[in-house]
């Protein structure tokens, strides 16, 4: 009475087929990442050395290292985060914990979604108009960082809001019912439990910001500037633009050089991601629930 019928056998075949198909998709998804890393390592691996990281480009950028671009990228990302994280976190707290569901809130949410959809070249032109010209920062680290900050904002807001919403509602109710105000609840219970999620979002955003090219091209990044920036009103080189320049604009660049630059850039990003995962694990262990 328990023998498999034809129908059962057909179902089992479908089952195996679907499973194999989805596995294939998953493998295909991982393939580009491995290929990119593999090619970069093979072709650019020989470039890597402490000298490459810590010297300036020479011979019209056909030799030497990447130091000014590396330092420039760190500046750009750091200042962009200093500007976008406080604003983004505050906005997310408002939207998630305070905002009533009304027309204004919906308009703001729509604006955030659309801000995330604005192409980076449009951000670049906006930054040029707003920060470089209107506010008079000139083409500078400050203008470029603020442009990056505006690009980063929607992601910071969305990541923070998701982290806040992952904190169980029962915790808030428990606080309110003991006579805590909304702010006391947010400060003492909600934020401490959301901080790991917020940090993860922020750090992932760092890796994206580090790679952006278009927004900084018109606003503060220089083609070739073999000095370290002295203040936020200086221009600077940046890894992403440097890669673009030596790959497309400079003649007679040795083949391994662009691969080496790309490898350093990806290395920075992967290091940030690893840091993010480590931080998240550590903060989760500290959680009291």
């Amino acid at each position: 009475m328990f023998e498999a019928t034809d129908l059962n056998r057909r179902d089992a075949r479908t089952q195996r087929l679907v499973r194999a198909l989805f596995l294939l998709m998953t493998v295909l998804l991982a393939a580009p990442v491995l290929l990119i890393l593999g090619v970069l390592l093979v072709k650019g691996g020989t470039m890597l050395s402490w000298d490459f990281l810590f010297t300036e480009p020479t011979n019209g950028m056909t030799a030497g290292g990447v130091l000014p671009a590396l330092v420039g990228t760190v500046w750009l990302v750091a200042i962009a985060l200093l500007a976008s994280v406080p604003v983004g976190v505050a906005a997310a707290v408002y939207l998630s914990e305070y905002a009533p569901d009304n027309v204004l809130t919906r308009v703001i949410n729509l604006a955030i979604i659309n801000l995330a959809g604005v192409p980076s070249i449009v951000h670049a032109l906006f930054g040029l108009g707003a920060f470089v010209i209107f506010f008079g920062f000139g083409t500078s680290i400050l203008a470029a960082s603020l442009t990056l900050a505006i690009m980063t904002l929607p992601v910071v807001i969305v990541a923070t809001r998701e982290a806040l919403q992952a904190v169980p509602h029962a915790f808030r109710e428990a606080c309110w019912n003991m006579g805590a105000t909304r702010w006391q609840t947010i400060w003492r219970v909600v934020l401490p439990n959301a901080v790991s999620g917020i940090l993860t979002g922020v750090i992932l955003e760092v890796s994206r910001t580090a790679g952006e090219t278009a927004p900084i091209m018109f606003t503060g990044a220089a083609f070739f500037l073999p000095f370290l920036p002295a203040s936020v009103f200086d221009q600077t080189m940046a890894m992403s633009l440097h890669l673009f320049v030596i790959a497309t604009q400079v003649p007679d660049v040795p083949e391994a050089l662009p691969y080496g630059v790309a490898l350093v850039l990806i290395g920075m990003v992967l290091a940030m991601n690893a840091l993010s995962i480590g931080l998240r694990t550590w903060l989760r262990q500290k959680k009291k629930w």
Partner: peptide
């Protein structure tokens, strides 16, 4: 409440 709602502390 019905379900104990201890704080994550």
């Amino acid at each position: 409440f019905q379900r104990p709602n201890v704080l994550p502390l």
